[in-house]
Amino acid sequence: MTASRDWTIPGLTIGLVVMLVAGVVLPDWLLNILNISFSRALAVLGLMVLWRTGLISFGHAFYYGLGAYTVAILGKELGVSEILVTVPAAMLVASTVGFFLGFIIRRYRDIFFAMLSLAFSMVLYGILVKTEALGSTDGFSVPTPSFLGFGAEEAADNKIVLYFVLCGIGYGAALLVHRYLQSTLGNLSTAIRDNEIRVEYLGYSVAHAIHVKYVMSAALAGLGGAILAISLSQVDPDSMVNWTISGELVFVTILSGPGSVAAPFIGSVVFELIRTYAFEWLPHAWQLIVGATLLAIIFFLPGGVWSLLARIFGRKEGER
């Protein structure tokens, strides 16, 4: 396992530098696509951790939505738009809720885990749709964010500030998750997936390990949702909490592959580009292209986009 050198951290650092430099020259529309992709990638990163443990959640839009609505409500009701306040608050709300629900959900596996997550997310969806004060299905707008008390006059400048902040957050999150996956608890992921009883005999609590992963994925999804809300300046239940969004997160997780913590970021950008171009070229049938892509990935690239990159660069990254 440690025989081949781990290129993840230098790779991520190079990636960060490239993205930061690129941010200065990329056109606005591409920056916007990257902002949306990276927000989603944060949630996918959390799902990847669960997936490595053999768990798939069909309800992580729950935490995505909690994060998004926390930022939006803070802005709307309290007039707080400081990223350094709203984003940690969103993470806190998502991880607190995740912590309590975790006591229930850690007892379930497989389809029951997936469906229970789905049920929680649809409860939140139902509540939001019935709440006229929060704009019901229309949602409401999120005020322009400020960073360190500094709010740009021009919205375009805000986009680029947000992009740099997001690159930093993405880098940090990927590093932390990578460190976690290399720790003993993280390494238990595959072991739990393969045989829980053995893990228990090794002296570890499976329920506890899953609980930790679940709260972590909730916090990451909340973080992703918070930044998505800021980036789009709008929240609504159909684009943030509905089961279709949970499905989209799972889709991107499969598309990315579990090979590396960098995979969700690459996979998410690929997904957004496919969707944007399918939408542009085939306005009547863009969903068909997106669906066909997923089929193609499952058939030909079961390890996701990451396995393709690993093959091209002739290196075995993730050791599953």
Partner: peptide, 20 residues
């Protein structure tokens, strides 16, 4: 262009229409 896919999708697509 298609209007389906949710409000946030429309926001993203509007940016594409104008900026791209």
């Amino acid at each position: 262009v298609d209007e389906s896919g949710g409000n946030t999708k429309q926001v993203a697509e509007y940016r594409n229409l104008v900026q791209k």
